[in-house]
Amino acid sequence: MTLALLLAKAPSALDPKGPAARDLAHVFWLMVGIATVIYVVTMGLFVFGLFRKGERPTRFTDHAFIVAGGLVVPSAVVLLLAVVTIHTTHRLTRSEPNALQVEVTGYQYWWAVKYPAQRAVTANEIHIPVGEPVDITLTSVDVNHSFWVPELAGKVDLIPGKTNLIHIRADHPGTYRGLCAEFCGLQHAHMDFLVIADPPGLFRTWVADQAGDAPTDVAGEALFSRLTCAGCHTVRGTPADGTFGPDLTHLASRTTLGAVTVPNDREHLAEWVQHAQSLKRGSLMPDVDLSPDQLQAVLAYLEALK
């Protein structure tokens, strides 16, 4: 499957592609080091105790042993980790001036993405300029979700009635898988998204394209606006102005459908439009009954929404 090829790698927190994730990977490896020492020493003492025979005296008194192992060493470790916590938290929550502002809103099983200054709107795909800081404000219209791009940063929840903020930055161009990490209902498993880090020039053309209305005079527009689709989806520049589902104005420029459930090609698009419920059971996009002619017209129309 093309999608598998496209993203045939783990969204690994240990393969950082941005400063935040890199800091966290360092913290992880530091802790693994400490943990290994503690675990090995503790288990060594334990196993030794298991095989030791009888009341032979040891050099340490019991209390000195317990105080050393249970109080002194852990206190030192705790202190070290507290410093690490404060330091890292400070670095990760620091705002940078001139960061690109993006607003992400969680919906049951998909993500609405807005670039307020550029007036661009899209869904399930966030393009960012490589090497530039990005501030993403997060909120939800329905239930809790959580925004997580393991290769770039930690996660922050999207909570209705509350606005959260996360700072990300990508150091290398590429496509990074994001996931919804807070259980949000039936299709929590298929609520992924893509963060695509483009060279700044490319990014700016992209964002300008997304800001524009849909191409006009495309065949099928009238049909689409008449069908139920228009009640849920917006295609800017046409009468379709539903807000229940993702904005489709530039659908054809996206790589996947249904929050990274299937690739965006004609075959899957046809399947999705008619049988969204078999591709993503429980999602809020209904199966739509279309005659073959209507289907072809709608597909052609959607594919023209570049």
Partner: peptide
């Protein structure tokens, strides 16, 4: 920080068990 400190009493328990083992067969 508070969560980190809970490793101290837990550690005491573990090391008391180990110390007990050391004294016995």
């Amino acid at each position: 920080g508070a969560s980190l400190t809970i490793s101290i009493p837990s550690g005491i328990v573990i090391f008391a068990l180990i110390a007990t083992l050391w004294r016995g067969t």
